[in-house]
Nucleic acid binder design. Sequence first.
DNA 1: CGGCAGTTTGATGTTACTCAATTTAAGTGG
DNA 2: CCACTTAAATTGAGTAACATCAAACTGCCG
Lengths: 217, 217
Amino acid sequence: MLEPSHQSAADEPPNWQRFLTARAGEQIATRNQSSSDVFVLCTGWAFRFLQLPDGRRQILNFLLPGDLLSVVTIFDKQFQFSAKAVTAIQLSGFVRSEILTRCKVSPGIQSAIGRCCVEESRAAGELAGVLGQRSADERIAYLFLHLMHRISARSVVRDHRYPLPLRQQQIADAVGLTPVHVSRVLSMFRDRRICVLSENVLNVLDHAELERIGAIG
Amino acid sequence: MLEPSHQSAADEPPNWQRFLTARAGEQIATRNQSSSDVFVLCTGWAFRFLQLPDGRRQILNFLLPGDLLSVVTIFDKQFQFSAKAVTAIQLSGFVRSEILTRCKVSPGIQSAIGRCCVEESRAAGELAGVLGQRSADERIAYLFLHLMHRISARSVVRDHRYPLPLRQQQIADAVGLTPVHVSRVLSMFRDRRICVLSENVLNVLDHAELERIGAIG
DNA sequence: CGGCAGTTTGATGTTACTCAATTTAAGTGG
DNA sequence: CCACTTAAATTGAGTAACATCAAACTGCCG
């Protein structure tokens, strides 16, 4: 997570930063497209994904406020993925060359980027482990726990209610299931009083059980 | 891929580099273990994997000569994964602090690391896409194509015969299938004259068909 | 020759997908 | 505020893909 630098009202807008917005559902990046900017999500939710030739897609990661679109966009001007807004969003773009220049003089930035790389790589490995080895219930429980963890890091969570503005189709694309099956698993979670997802809020009733199902080694 | 620097016979062994060997099947790294060294595989095959509590494992990547164990080991002393030797191997370890120091003065190294990060992230994303969205045939075809591509980059391939020292169990763990099902898919590939894996060699008979099955968008 | 690890094959079971119909929720314009 | 429209979620029945279990087979090494 990198925070976009604040811009005081009295200053001229700097030429190394620009702001963008997108509406819910709008595509904000396309694979193989080039950009001289590195983007940070400031408000709203988005996701990175791979589009397959037959129309299916794999969501690689949900993006929350403060997240870089992907850390590796710092090193490569070509996107290795596509990205879409889940809700209405605001993005901040920094010119890449500026970041790389600052990197050379600031060990702080350099190590922050390193930590981001580690985190992104860890998350990618975990996702592969979950998709390759675990059942439908476990995948969805894992996704919820993973998101809950990241939401908690950003804001106070009260009464085990987490804001989660996701359609079941998006959950399905993230965990490699069909939306129909996601619906069945969520019904099961609801019946067993584990958690309820409705009206863009995930209400966790039995955190211990959710962990028992979805925790990774 | 980073080449280990050569050490002339007349020199003293440098204190920032050390060599290691491991036998086939030996574990060479364990998750959460720390190491002050960054390792490069010099000879043989190995793989990185995640071990699940129930004993199953997901292979994240096969390592070929010249590969870093993982690029992100440059930024973090704790391994985020475990690793095992497939064949007998030789490893070269560089002390991390030395690499980071050189990074600051050499833009060449810095950008090489950047390219490695991009490549590793791209591969991780593709793996998630394959595991989440594609069928058994497609997963195995993808794995073969991916490995063929990497082998070709390292050595001349004659008569479409690729050295591939993998057990079916390892293929299974890499693509999220059971060894029994891997055997059936390989039988099918053999019957349909697409490719034959035996005696540690993958013989590709119908490259076009293999691509039709396993190519990613 | 015997033992072991790896592979193959068959029979059966389970999980998740597909297709299709129905219900619920969310907008939209009168 | 209410009919109308459309998107999302739920439910059921039938099916396909892959897992599981178990036995037979192969090649290799002592």
